[in-house]
C-alpha cells in the first residue's frame, strides 16, 4: 500500500498519520513515560543525552557529506570548508550562532559563484 495506492482523498492523510505521526509521537510518549521515572541528575540521563547528541550530529554530518537537492551539485570540499569556517567563526565570536551561520553561508556562496 503506497502513498498513491488509493484514489480516496483521505488515504494520503491516513498514510501521513500512520507513517508520520504514529512513528514519531510513539517515541515522544515513550520518552515522557521513561522521563517520569528518572531524576534530572541521574547518570543514565548523561547517557541518553550523549546518544541524542550523537544522533543529531550524525544527521548534520550526513546533510553536509550526502546532501540533497541543489546542494548536492556543490563540491564536497567546499561544503566541508564552509562548515569548518563557520564553526571556527562561532567559537571565535564567543559562541554566537549567527556569526557561524554568516561565515559558513558566505564561504559557500562565494565558492559557488566562483565555480559558476
Amino acid at each position: 500500500m503506497t502513498f498513491d495506492a488509493l484514489d480516496a482523498w483521505w488515504w494520503p492523510y491516513l498514510f501521513i498519520l500512520v507513517a508520520g505521526w504514529l512513528a514519531t509521537d510513539s517515541w515522544r510518549y515513550l520518552g515522557v513515560y521513561l522521563g517520569g521515572k528518572m531524576s534530572e541528575e541521574s547518570d543514565i540521563l548523561v547517557f541518553v543525552r550523549c546518544v541524542a547528541t550523537a544522533l543529531v550530529a550524525a544527521v548534520i554530518a550526513n546533510l553536509i557529506v550526502f546532501p540533497s537537492g541543489t546542494l548536492a551539485d556543490s563540491p564536497l570540499a567546499l561544503r566541508l570548508g564552509a562548515a569548518i569556517a563557520g564553526f571556527a567563526a562561532y567559537l571565535l565570536a564567543r559562541k554566537q550562532i549567527l556569526a557561524g551561520i554568516i561565515v559558513a553561508e558566505a564561504f559557500l556562496l562565494v565558492g559557488l559563484y566562483l565555480i559558476g
Binding site: C50, T53, L63, S74, G86, F87, Y90, I97, A104
Partner: peptide, 30 residues
Amino acid sequence: QLTAALLFLTPVYFLTSLWGSARERAGHVA
C-alpha cells in the same frame, strides 16, 4: 546558488547550536 545556501542552513545551525547546548563535556565528545 541560493537554494543550495538554504539547504546548507540546517546543518550549519545544528553544528553550532548543538555545541552550545551540551550540558557536560561528554556532550562535545558525543
